[in-house]
């Protein structure tokens, strides 16, 4: 499933007239976990949200440049952003299950709202998605109860199940563990490592230990000051970035000297 690489070239992202990120060039390998790290305001979340065209849903926000999924530019005029988001799923910082829906309906929502109504199909997708998200054993007996009644960590896994239920090729995760306790965080990290065989994963994280633990490749972003554009400083295999970064700025950040 995850057989397409993502090639970002010359990507800039704007909020109104403000250029939040400038000229990002980066290749994301299929079937791997890529971590975006960097200080607050460096634009790593903005770049992430540009990968499935969620950035432009904010009023006044727009992008420039190309993002190729395989050989298709997702910003091509002929491409429907809704189709892009179906192929590139997303998990957010705060778990956001639909409060009016049960656990079952949360997972089924993506298919159902896209027109799938067959009970058998839905049942199967709900079960496999919840199993993939390591949540099935905890909730299989109460699929009809509200999704919002789960613990924080379970809610986040529910959101992962909901995201993979529509069978995307890529899973974008925007600080998925920042609101979770260490045990729930570990559960999500284990899950990510299991999922990377089927999905290309890109994760934004403030937690450098997390980036070191789970990711294959790391991209380091930074920003010089308020009102300036964030940029990609360097990228490479996680081990190399953490052990022998080629740019001084990266080394300082990883050593905890700023950010």
């Amino acid at each position: 499933m995850a057989d397409h690489r993502i090639e970002i070239s010359g990507l800039s992202a704007f909020y109104g007239a403000f250029r939040a990120v400038e000229d990002v060039n980066l290749t994301i390998e299929p079937g791997s976990i890529t971590a975006f790290i960097g200080p607050s305001g460096c634009g790593k979340s903005t770049v992430l949200r540009s990968l499935n065209r969620m950035h432009e849903t904010i009023p006044g926000a727009r992008t420039e440049g190309k993002v190729l999924l395989g050989d298709q530019d997702i910003y091509d005029r002929s491409v429907d952003p809704v189709a892009v988001r179906r192929a590139i799923g997303m998990v957010f910082q705060r778990a956001n299950p639909f409060p009016t829906m049960s656990i079952y309906d949360n997972v089924a929502s993506g298919l159902r709202l896209n027109g799938v109504t067959k009970r058998g199909v839905l049942d199967e997708v709900v079960e496999t998605s919840l199993r993939s998200a390591n949540l099935w054993n905890e909730v299989s007996g109460r699929l009809g109860s509200p999704g919002a009644g789960l613990s924080g960590g379970q809610q986040q896994r529910l959101c992962i199940a909901r995201a993979i239920a529509v069978k995307p090729q890529v899973l974008l995760m925007d600080e998925p563990c920042s609101a979770l306790d260490p045990i729930s965080t570990l559960a999500i990290e284990d899950l990510m490592i299991q999922l990377k065989t089927s999905y290309t994963i890109v994760i934004v994280t403030h937690n450098m230990q997390q980036a070191a633990r789970v990711s294959d490749n790391t991209a380091f972003f930074t920003v010089e000051g308020l009102g300036t554009s964030g940029r990609l400083v360097e990228t490479g295999p996680t081990r190399r970035i953490f052990e022998s970064p080629s740019v001084k700025r990266t080394e300082e950040y990883i050593a905890g000297r700023f950010g």
């Binding site: 189709a83 988001r85 179906r86 799923g89 957010f92 929502s109 993506g110 709202l113």
Partner: peptide, 14 residues
Amino acid sequence: SRDLREASLAMGIG
């Protein structure tokens, strides 16, 4: 909350 709208949009729901 905007979170819910984003969750839905991000699943490829119009």
